[in-house]
Design a protein around this nucleic acid. Structure first.
Lengths: 228, 228
DNA sequence: TAATTTCCTTACAACGACTGTAAGTGTACA
DNA sequence: TGTACACTTACAGTCGTTGTAAGGAAATTA
């Protein structure tokens, strides 16, 4: 069965939010509404949506700030939906990386068509993981950092993928081993360490020293030297 | 030196066309205006633009038809720019694969911002070659056809790439050999034939029999059984 | 029809990348 | 100082890729 994409609505007006949720739900999308504006960044990050519909006038951080912050860390499309029918706002939003800019009131058909277009376009993009200034192309097993790049062998790539997906949390050895070698009959505790050495040696090639840290007794964790 | 993207303007009103060309040229883009509406498809195909700005009301084929035709064969973004401020037209255009829909008159800043956004998004897409229902991902050396896909080894991939790039024209053996083995000292006439056999055998795996035809004394050519 | 040119096919071997095994070394912590 | 945990290096097997060699098939021409 094909999982429908998940749309997340960042809008403080509860009536409008519910209306938007309903509009998308009716079309078969999975939907999520922001629940509070305490720390919208974390809430969005944790939700892993496929697309975000974002208002500009929000309590706390503005939509502009949110848009910029998210575009530096995530790979989903952002559609701005706002009452501010102002060319300067639109230019600013697009400049910050927003993928579309629509003004309220907006016919549901129009919104749906734009969202569909964005989802179709983004589906063709390579699946990227972002964290701490690093980008990892899962399909190509390729790390992008600053102006350099590095292609990893399959095994090392899958380990690095797990570290990226769970960063900044610690990933246990058991979890990695289970994920790579079926977990059933643990080939050997050592093989993971060997691949860790290989991964670190490769990362060192492009200047990424000490990115993979060992937490004794617990596992490994990704520790970028500088946030983006 | 970095080559600026090329914008192509498909607009029959010569004054508006010149104005648009000027707008983009001033920003440093390479620009091209459609010269006639005899066979716009061929003119656009030959130009290999990075983005197309397309009007709806055109002599001959409508912008809708053009948009649909192009989206089935090309990979550049299409921005519709029309005087028809009609939601149904917009929905239709987006449904046909258009990437954006703007209405005239449109502030140059707005147009430029939208174009920039589309170019940035499309730059992240894998570089795809399309011909006759086939798609070839150059970076991944991967053929996509209907619901199947096939990853080729480097050498076969480069041969297939040359065939795709020049289709539906014949590609000479000398050209391929020159492109792959430096052309200087022709490793061996035979090695190309060996790789052709391998390529054909691989294509056969996903049901693409007789796609690569031999033209005796001239070279090879791509011959898809059915147009898309 | 026979000869010649052009193209195709198969088998083989060399090479390199990747990966797990084994054995020994280093390091933190009680 | 001892023990558990983690790291490193060398080695060998496997697999995919690629060019070489040799012979066969098909089309063209005399």
């Amino acid at each position: 069965m094909i999982m429908k994409p998940c749309i997340m609505i960042i809008e403080d007006n509860i009536y409008l939010r519910e209306e938007l949720l309903h509009t998308f739900a009716k079309e078969g999308y999975a939907v999520l509404g922001i629940s509070s504006f305490q720390s919208p960044e974390q809430e969005i990050l944790n939700a892993h949506p496929d697309l975000v519909v974002l208002d500009i006038n929000l309590p706390g951080k503005s939509g502009f700030e949110l848009c910029k912050w998210l575009k530096n860390r995530c790979t989903f499309p952002i559609l701005i939906l706002t009452a501010r029918d102002d060319l300067n706002d639109e230019l600013r939003a697009l400049g910050l990386g927003a993928d579309d800019y629509l003004t309220k009131p907006c016919p549901p058909n129009r919104l749906l068509a734009r969202v569909t277009r964005l989802l179709e376009t983004y589906q063709k993009l390579p699946s990227l993981l972002k964290f701490g200034g690093l980008t990892f192309d899962v399909d190509a097993c390729r790390i992008l950092w600053k102006t350099t790049s590095l292609t990893l062998p399959e095994t090392e790539g899958r380990i690095f993928q797990l570290l990226m997906e769970h960063a900044p949390d610690i990933v246990s050895k058991e979890y990695i081993a289970g994920n790579l070698w079926g977990g059933v009959d643990y080939v050997d505790e050592n093989i993971l360490q060997v691949n860790m050495t290989r991964l670190r040696k490769n990362l060192d090639k492009i200047g990424l020293k000490d990115i993979v840290r060992t937490v004794r007794g617990q596992g490994y964790v990704l520790c970028p030297s500088s946030e983006p």
